[in-house]
Design a protein around this nucleic acid. Sequence first.
DNA 1: TCAATATATTTGTCATAGCAACTATTGTTA
DNA 2: TAACAATAGTTGCTATGACAAATATATTGA
Lengths: 145, 145
Amino acid sequence: MQEKETTKNFGAYMDRTIKLIKHNYTKSFKEIGVDITTEQWVILDSLNEKDGLSQNELASGSFKNAPTVSRIIDLLCKKDLTERKPSKEDRRKHHIFLTVKGRNTYLKALPIVEGLRKKGWNGLNDEDYDHFIRIMNQVFSNFEL
Amino acid sequence: MQEKETTKNFGAYMDRTIKLIKHNYTKSFKEIGVDITTEQWVILDSLNEKDGLSQNELASGSFKNAPTVSRIIDLLCKKDLTERKPSKEDRRKHHIFLTVKGRNTYLKALPIVEGLRKKGWNGLNDEDYDHFIRIMNQVFSNFEL
DNA sequence: TCAATATATTTGTCATAGCAACTATTGTTA
DNA sequence: TAACAATAGTTGCTATGACAAATATATTGA
């Protein structure tokens, strides 16, 4: 029988798992010749969902901060996967759009991502997922206050 | 009733939760005047558990890679929290030890860390923890192959 | 023993992330 | 309207992290 720790070091488990997940994404993207990082994928995914988001909207949607998004967009634009268009209503804002190349890249990467998600959840079921989401949301809201 | 996605985007939940956890650690360390980062804490914690580990051992124990550990130890030594001592058996190796200041820093930070772990698991119980660990281990081993 | 190989660590480069400070613009309010 | 505050984005600085290459030392095998 396993002794219960007085405090639960759940962070370490998440940390090592996240690192391994990102490693798998990076490796798989490279294998199919898609030149993006895991974090760049997150941004492309948001834009595919809703094109023309502002950088702030991308930031809050992906839980990144403004400088990080600014620099990721720099790189994506340099690779011609996205473009910045100045907003007409608010001249401080940029709207970010997928280019044709960006959308193609997204579509090329998508089956890989879905494959990795399936692979990662192998041996687990929908109940596990519900429980997992409940735990994650609880931990998140515990720290949010 | 919630529709089940075909693929489960568990990574995003872990990502945002990890970020929030680290933010809380950083903020709390600062508040009590402990000048270390979350990742530096991880290394100090390993050394408190077993002093004199080599950098490689620290790396594999904390799921960091060798260059990252090398640089974290640089910073910890600069702050006089650890010291490198050359190994006698193997002249490639260093053994890393906590200094007195390092151990005091560890002891000062420890109750904060335990408080944050308790806070994070608030509203959750031991069964949740068992399930959480099972899920994390399963996901980890799914990607390890 | 000598050459090939493996291991421990360091260094360089780039991407991500957090924080602070800055610019430019917009909104508020006295 | 003029000052002030708020917002969107950028830039600088530092830390972490991944990866490749370099150095120094150890180990192995012909």
